[in-house]
Design a protein around this nucleic acid. Structure first.
Lengths: 230, 230, 230, 230
DNA sequence: GATGAATGAGCGTTCATTCAT
DNA sequence: GATGAATGAACGCTCATTCAT
């Protein structure tokens, strides 16, 4: 009776131009709704209305409602992964650890800032049991990228367990930056928090040289990062 | 007279007691359902069934469904706050920072571990727009406690902005410990992660003395924490 | 997610008077709709409307739409079975075969005539693959009753295979009488067809004595059935 | 000229031929779907898919979905009619009644057996109110053929009302043979049931000569049909 | 003609909430 | 107060039909 629901996100590959436009309209409408009105406003009728298509058209491309959310989740997942892959690529190892970490944190912050409500919803979805596997798989990929960087960098790594370190860092950065955007803590601007998160990560990961004070003072004075690697 | 007055009293007291018991049953039923079956299983009928009361009775004590979830959220909020208030109270300032932070992280981990499914749901609820203010208020209280500790402790604090530090620390610890329970990252046991989170926090917050290496080696060798404060 | 759909027809046993009335109204409304408007008119909204209740109320007593149809099917199944059990009971063996068969055929005809449209729909339902087992089980019970009679009667049975005979007779009588009501074949009144069906069955089942002609002439003249059994 | 005329012709003929092929593909696809998956699987999209055409093309040849089912019904109707017309034609009157009836029953059984699922669906369709007239018309034609045979045959007919007899016989044979295929009654093979149905019909229709036993014994012994006609 | 993307009325079903008993 | 039957708006989803390409 009921057609099996594969985990496949897209029901039919849109081959015509109009079809492509429709799929795009559906995804954009959903992003807008999620970002502005939240998860429960994203009913099929509302999505259809905002997208300017009929409900039936949505089902031409997405087998069920969750498939739309999955598609968006995948899209953001890929964005995050691409960002980190680029910034943590082996070719960037000549940069200082601080430069690299700052770039990653800032990049994620920008990603979230572009549509905070969407990322709020995606965070919610990530907490639902039904989506656990998807999120877990994503986390593994992210952690693997971080792990690879931690192993490859010439900065002196402090933690004994690279796995644990990657896990802790990924969760901490994500949660803090997202909360920063969603809660807008009074008195704290985003830039300050980015710097704090970068500090959090660097101090946790990198074996500090002594004399510590001198180096930090230097940074503060110059506004530039001393190379942690030679 | 006496008898009547007595009967009046007991007739009144049991009513209140019964009301308390009913409210308790409703909350416990909801906790069980949320923890075991998730948010969508927590329908009014199901809660009533598990609590052993009628749906109508629930509305006697909770004006609408969300009020139950709010009550549970408040209860867990209070538990967290009480935990932190106790561990970060001024009376505990003589303990080492590592001891204190370890106690807090471990305490939160225990709180989450007692019913991870519930905290998963509460995290979800906390991300909903409608609950933003409630969560924000809670975060402010938590941060205030942390902030107070950071100011009061004799450990040499490194961050310039106590507000930012409290925010970063709270978000990081919460997210990492919850993710630890919900994702069960393979190869990482809870105790290891607790230690890593403690390291994350301490290294971020406390100005490290030199020579750093010696001190860390000492900790690893003794299995005990050297006092960071004098 | 989806609650398992047991084959149970009734979701909750109605214990209050109002509940009983509601269940009755739902069933009667469905019978009316099926009888007058056919299967596809029996939507949940329409049933609710005709029954004078809300859709939600239907789901209080029937887990899904098909459960209503199953309940009606069971009700008619039981009626047929009761009818045949009574007429073919061992206590009636002293009656002539013709008397017995006539009573059964006439009884079924009356059953169908009381709401032909309903039996039309039930016949449809009986042909749907999903209901095959239900109908098969019913047919087995009916055939068993007929079979028992064929073995017990003192009329001289002709067919070698009692099983086959029971099957053939049951299917033939049912189909002919139902078609009689639904097609209203011009020029044929119900009574004539009943007599023809009775003849069909008797001549098929009972070993005719010779001289045949004499006996048939006698029947025609007298309008009464000579005992086929001694 | 020649070529052009020829091309004109073939351009026209292929078009018609293609149309024929398309209609054929649609009908065959529908037959397959109905036979294997049932009525509800026969959606326009599914038919189009199996037929290898587009939904739009179906509407070129069939004004609406039901028209396809009607066409199939007509096709099967015609097959049944042709079968019976051939077997009951005046030219066959020299055969014994048993031979003729056996041929008809066996022919119908074969018709049904070639695609039982399709005939199940057609039986369902035949019971729908909207199709009543179509089925009635078909039944009238069938009955007319039977009636003509009953009048023309030299076998001694027993029933007084040829109309009633034709009706009874047609309904009984159809229902029993179809139920035989759809229910697969345990312990009864098709051949046995065919013989029983033939007996049912013959004993009902034909005035039996005495002594009955002798003749039946003879049939059983010889495995051949004694001529009922002279 | 042929295509298949688009349509949208209508379906079965759920569940927070109300209120007569 | 307690009950639980009744409510009905709203949901996700289907599919016969249309029509721009």
């Amino acid at each position: 009776m009921k057609a099996r629901r594969s985990s496949t996100v897209v029901r039919k590959l849109p081959r015509q131009a109009r079809a492509q436009a429709t799929v795009g309209a559906i995804l954009e409408a959903t992003v807008q709704i999620l970002d502005r009105e939240g998860l429960e406003a994203a009913t099929m009728s509302h999505i259809a209305e905002v997208a300017g298509v009929s409900v039936g058209s949505i089902y031409q491309y997405f087998s069920h409602r969750d498939a739309i959310l999955n598609a968006l989740q995948d899209r953001e997942f890929e964005r995050s992964l691409r960002l980190m892959q680029e910034l943590l690529a082996d070719g960037n190892l000549t940069q200082s650890a601080r430069e690299t970490v700052t770039a990653v944190v800032r990049g994620l912050a920008e990603l979230y800032r572009s549509c905070p409500g969407l990322h709020r919803v995606l965070a919610i979805e990530g907490l639902r049991v039904a989506k656990a596997d998807r999120v877990h798989a994503f986390d593994l990929r992210i952690i693997e990228i971080v792990r690879h960087f931690l192993v490859a960098t010439s900065a002196p790594m402090r933690p004994k367990s690279v796995d644990a370190a990657a896990f802790v860092v990924v969760q901490s950065v994500r949660a803090t930056m997202l909360a920063c955007l969603l809660e807008r803590p009074s008195g704290l601007d985003e830039e300050t928090l980015i710097q704090e998160v970068v500090d959090l990560v660097l101090r946790y990961l990198v074996r500090q040289e002594s004399p510590e004070n001198a180096r930090e003072a230097a940074r503060d004075a110059e506004g530039a990062m001393p190379r942690l690697v030679k």
